[in-house]
Nucleic acid binder design. Structure first.
Lengths: 151, 151
DNA sequence: ATTCATGCAAATCGTTTGCAACCCA
DNA sequence: TGGGTTGCAAACGATTTGCATGAAT
């Protein structure tokens, strides 16, 4: 079993790309924040902790690279910017996000309850699914009970 | 049963907003292109057919207004811009999009196969779902059979 | 030594906003 | 008449790019 950073090294070598301190620093930040949905700007600030000279453009370029290598996952929560998170492993492509309309918190569901749906889509539409993104908008437990109370 | 433009007139009146030629022109374009996923820029060009003096900012403002009134639906296909489509009716919030990774065509699925999933999420997470957006990425029938052939 | 990567600043893209003129109710 | 609405241009925020320098192989 390999961790993200050794996978990264291997894939860089494969493609003839270089392993730089900046690239390692970005990946390290992503690994230290597994499960979070970070904006490029935030990642930039965090990386500056261990590598102060880094430029924002490099962060963008590195995130795009990590995304192509499936080490991070790019997501769009419809809040005007893109967000990145470490992928748990490259096999799992299930990302269910529960977005609270009240407090804007983003919770996750890992479960792949959509599998039966994929079979149905293949049968009905002949469409072969490789990935999906699912977002649910609503009210989280906390906000929902507060809303009932206030009423 | 009311059509979109009479709903629009009523809701504008309700809120003390005004019915202008520009607003009518934008809605007309959206109605003439039901089922399509148009970019604001495209909508702008189309509206100029019947209303050449219109400004792009007005198109944006009108689309935001129509979206708030649930007469159009804003979607994000992760291609770097937002897209709008006429909503069939304000009750249905199910928008399943099948996005082909080969030809980029966007097909739709209307069916609300996710309903049982919503019950489960409520039970497990206490999260009350008001809306959801589901995107499936893969290969459409046409591209998939072409790929098998070419191989 | 070569080639790729970086930092910076300028450029770009989609979108929003300030404002004076305009026009529906 | 008066307040919402428009068109224009300028402002905006996120992201990308050109380029000379710097670093990894």
């Amino acid at each position: 079993m390999q961790d993200s950073s050794s996978i990264f090294k291997n894939r860089l070598k494969e493609k003839g790309y270089k392993l730089t301190a900046q690239r390692q620093a970005v990946l390290k930040v992503m690994m230290e924040h597994e499960g979070e949905h970070l904006r490029p700007e935030e990642i930039y600030e965090l990386v500056k902790g261990s590598y102060p000279e880094i430029g924002l453009a490099t962060v963008y370029r590195t995130l795009a690279l990590l995304n192509r290598m499936e080490l991070v996952y790019k997501l769009d929560l419809n809040d005007g910017c893109s967000r990145y998170e470490l992928s748990r492993n490259s096999e799992d492509h299930w990302h269910h996000h529960l977005i609270c309309l009240k407090c804007n918190e983003v919770a996750e569901m890992e479960e792949d309850l959509l599998e039966s749906l994929e079979g149905e889509i293949l049968r009905k539409k002949g469409f072969v699914i490789k990935d999906h993104k699912v977002k649910f908008y609503g009210y989280c437990r906390k906000c929902y009970s507060k809303m009932k109370q206030d009423k």
